[in-house]
Design a protein around this nucleic acid. Structure first.
Lengths: 169, 169
DNA sequence: TTGATTTCCATAAAATCCCATGCTAGGTTA
DNA sequence: TAACCTAGCATGGGATTTTATGGAAATCAA
């Protein structure tokens, strides 16, 4: 299955319309069970992330994976209800139109301070939508962290599994 | 499984098109589950490597291995999101055309300062794309390091595993 | 009815496809 | 063995399609 890869900065017009990068559309199409050629795929935008100023787009298939994880928590448990708030309450269905665009509702735009431009960032099974400057800041922060000590090596070393067992975080 | 071996310097034209060395194409074909004779293989170019002025090409199979390792880290963990940034956000799908070429988008060319020539360098399960002069510099640096003390011997000695146990780095 | 939203059409730039050429290495044939 | 053939390769140029984006018309909602 194809993954969300790459970055793209697109314009947001006065009506809140913005193009979804074409490669992302291909992934959304693959990830929508009801999609077929000539139809526009549906997907989900989550705006509940707290510690980062971005929206997150999920194909129907991947949001389903996440929802299934939540469903495994005990019904009515505090934890489950919080997760449902963050992932379900704070999210909307979106539909790509025939020009490859979506409309970002004002509420979502305000949430992440998007005005006239939006940066789309592929993250594998989801993608993020940032105000371009916020994204740049966030990248700088990450760069700094990575240069400190041996953080970069440490990060990559997380991929060195021994005995097929992931390192504990 | 065939590996990326050897070096080749090819021209980059005004449109950013450049031929993938034929032996590399064979490896990419083997590494694309959907490939068959007459079809052009897909693969992935990662441009997120910090501290090195090169792009990295992975067959679908090898990038998939990497992605699977990342997917085993906890969803939404800081570590996973950093790795997704480095490996997914900073990468693109590329498709070899029927003449054996790909298009290097301007952003990637700028990143590694590639202008009219590109050097392809086999690295086993991936290959690198360099601006030829940068590559030469990098090689010189490596040569210097290797001639200091007994660095070359030391390096090769890392291959002496005892009891199937890699030496500690 | 008036503001907001959705649908439809238009366009320029960019990405992709298609065809053509010169070259080289291998193999084939006289 | 020498001349020839052929297939694959690296590269160039033009035609075509897709993308991103702007604006107008149509529909909806308060």
């Amino acid at each position: 299955m194809r993954r969300f890869r790459g970055e793209a900065e697109n314009k947001v017009d006065a009506k809140g319309r913005v193009s979804i990068p074409a490669p992302f559309r291909r992934v959304l199409e693959e990830g929508d069970p009801d999609w077929s050629v000539g139809v526009s795929p549906n997907f989900v935008i989550v705006y509940g992330r707290r510690n980062s100023k971005c929206l997150e787009g999920y194909s129907l298939r991947s949001i389903n994976d996440v929802d299934n994880l939540v469903s495994r928590l005990p019904r009515y448990s505090k934890e489950r209800e919080i997760l449902e708030r963050l992932l379900n309450s704070q999210s909307i269905y979106a539909q790509v139109d025939e020009n490859g665009r979506i409309v970002l509702p004002p509420k979502l735009r305000e949430k992440v301070e998007i005005n006239s431009k939006a940066m789309f960032v592929g993250m594998g099974d989801k993608f993020q939508i940032w105000e371009p400057n916020s994204y740049q800041e966030d990248m700088l922060l990450m760069d700094q962290k990575l240069s400190e000590n041996n953080f970069e090596e440490e990060i990559y070393s997380l991929l060195d599994y021994k005995d097929n067992d992931p390192k504990k975080l």
